[in-house]
Each structure stands twice: as C-alpha cells, then as structure tokens.
C-alpha cells in the first residue's frame, strides 16, 4: 500500500522547482532583488548615471559629506564624491566576494565531504577531525589575524580567508548526505556494472547528495556579504581606494553623528541584499526539502 507512492518522487527536484517556486511570493520577491543586485554588480555604469553624476571617482573636496541635493540623491561622501554612484559601484565587490566565497566553500565542502563519506576509514576520521578543529575555532578572530598578516587586501584574499573558515560547516552536511546516498542500492548497482570510484562519485553520489549543501550555501550568501562588510568595517577587509559597502560604512563610523546619510544609504543596500539572498535560499530549501513541503 505504502509503496504506491515512489520514494524518489520527493528527491527529484525538477518538477517541484518548476511548479512550487514560481507561485511563492517570497521566491519571486527575493529573486527579483538578487537579480537587480547582480545587474548592479555586472554593469554599475548603467545605473550609476541615472541622476547625471555616474562617475564614483569624480570628486570635489568642497562637497565633502554634504547631504543629498538635486542630482545627488544620496549626497556626498567624505571625499566629496557622489554617494549614490559609490553605493552602486559598491555592489560589485560585495557580490564578487559573495559568489567567489560561495563557489569556493561548496567546492571544498563537496570534495572533503565526498572523500570522507565515500572512503570512510582513516580518510573520514582525519577529515572529520579537521572539520571539528575549524568549527571549534573562533572564526572572526582567525580571519582578523590572517588578514592582518597579509599585505594585499583585495576581493581574492578576502574570499580566500572567508572560504578557509566557511567550508567546514558545509563539508559536514555534505558528508552526512553522502553517507546516506552511498548505501543506496543504485551505488552498489553502479559498482556491479564496473563503475570506478571517480565515475560513481561524479555521476551518482554528487548529483544525489549535493541538494542540502546547495541550499545551505544559498542561505549563506547573505551571511558572507555581511561578514565581508564586518571585516572591512574592522579595517582588515578591502581598503580604500576600493569601493565597497564595507569601506563606506567603515568611513561612515567616524562621521555618522554629523552626516547620518553616509551610514544610512550603504546600510540600506547591504541589508536589502543580505535579506534577498537569505530569502532566496530559504525559498529554495522549502521547495526542495520534502519534509517541509
């Protein structure tokens, strides 16, 4: 009786994603926000010039920290540059770091999780203990220490440090999900027809176990942007003359009593972006996870 509903119907996400997602308002809104942010990152020049002053580097110290006025809806920053253009251009590094870091953590997590879950034994023990060490370590302190010893602080170094401390949680999830898949009969069947470990991992294990990791990574994107801003705010992330929301907020902290707009506008963009990614990840998880549906 119970066997009449195939078990796998719930694990195949294609139809679910197609039908369920587009009807969910949370998904539609968050996807729109994320799309807009990505467009800002890819082509800031298309948006920055909307109010006639599209160059973030065209500054006049005479305008330093002036409040919004005609043609400068967000006002000016401390250097006298148009804040609106700066905030638009700031999306690029935030999104770049978010994507780089997400990609990096997922790759590392998938590799480590697969090795640990598939080969078990010593590999598993070493990998799992390594994960435990990283998870037990105060990540923020570690990032600050490492970034302080580095001479260059660009998108790549910041991403690298975020990846270094970001993969363990995902790797643990991946390992669990690999363990569940590896004992499936279709893995035994693949071995039976002579498939080697590489093929089994690439063709069968990873496609069937990456779901939870992908969803979790989506949820993490917002967190990464927030983390990047925090690092920059603490002075160990990106540094001027780089344009990023973190840098802008870092500068704003000294002036916000007198020029509140320096703090408000980058914060709004940061918050909306983080929320957009978190909601998107949430909606994706709800759509895929059969227990929640």
């Amino acid at each position: 009786m119970a066997s009449s509903t195939p078990v796998s119907a719930s694990t195949d996400l294609r139809p679910v994603v197609r039908t369920g997602l587009t009807r969910s308002p949370a998904f539609v809104i968050s996807a729109t926000v994320v799309l807009i942010i990505c467009a800002l990152a890819v082509a800031p020049q298309a948006f920055a010039g909307w109010f006639g002053h599209g160059d973030p580097r065209a500054c006049d110290l005479a305008d330093s920290a002036l409040p919004p006025r005609e043609g400068h809806p967000f006002g000016f920053d401390v250097q006298g540059c148009d804040l609106y253009a700066n905030v638009i251009y700031g999306a690029r590094s935030s999104v770049a770091i978010a994507l780089l870091t997400t990609l990096g953590t997922v790759v590392v997590a998938v590799v480590v999780g697969c090795l640990a879950g598939y080969f078990r034994g010593w590999t598993d023990m070493l990998m799992s203990r390594l994960v435990d060490v990283f998870l037990g370590f105060p990540a923020l302190v570690g990032m600050i220490v490492i970034l302080q010893t580095l001479s260059t602080h660009n998108e790549f170094t910041v991403s690298a440090v975020l990846i270094l401390f970001g993969w363990p949680a995902l790797a643990r999830v991946m390992r669990g999900s690999v363990l569940a898949v590896v004992n499936s009969e279709y893995i035994a069947a693949a071995r039976g027809i002579g498939a080697g470990p590489v093929r089994i991992l690439l063709r069968h294990v990873i496609p069937n176990s990456i779901g939870p990791v992908a969803v979790l990574a989506g949820l993490n994107v917002g967190g990464i942007i927030a983390y990047e801003s925090a690092l920059t705010f603490l002075g160990v992330g990106l540094q001027t003359p780089a344009i990023s929301w973190g840098v802008q907020l870092n500068t704003a902290q000294q002036y916000f009593t007198t020029s509140i707009h320096l703090l408000v506008f980058p914060s709004i963009f940061l918050t909306v972006t983080v929320l957009g990614f978190v909601l998107l990840g949430d909606a994706l998880r709800d759509a895929i996870d059969p227990r929640i549906r």
Binding site: S3, S8, S184, E185, A188, G192, N208
Partner: peptide
C-alpha cells in the same frame, strides 16, 4: 556476473 536487486525503488539512480 551481474546482480539484480531486491528493491526497484532504490536500485535506480533517481536523477538519471
């Protein structure tokens, strides 16, 4: 020597 499995629901990769 090839194996035919008991459970036709779990012995086929659901994503293929």
């Amino acid at each position: 020597v090839q194996l035919v499995f008991q459970d036709p629901y779990t012995s086929l990769d659901p994503r293929m």
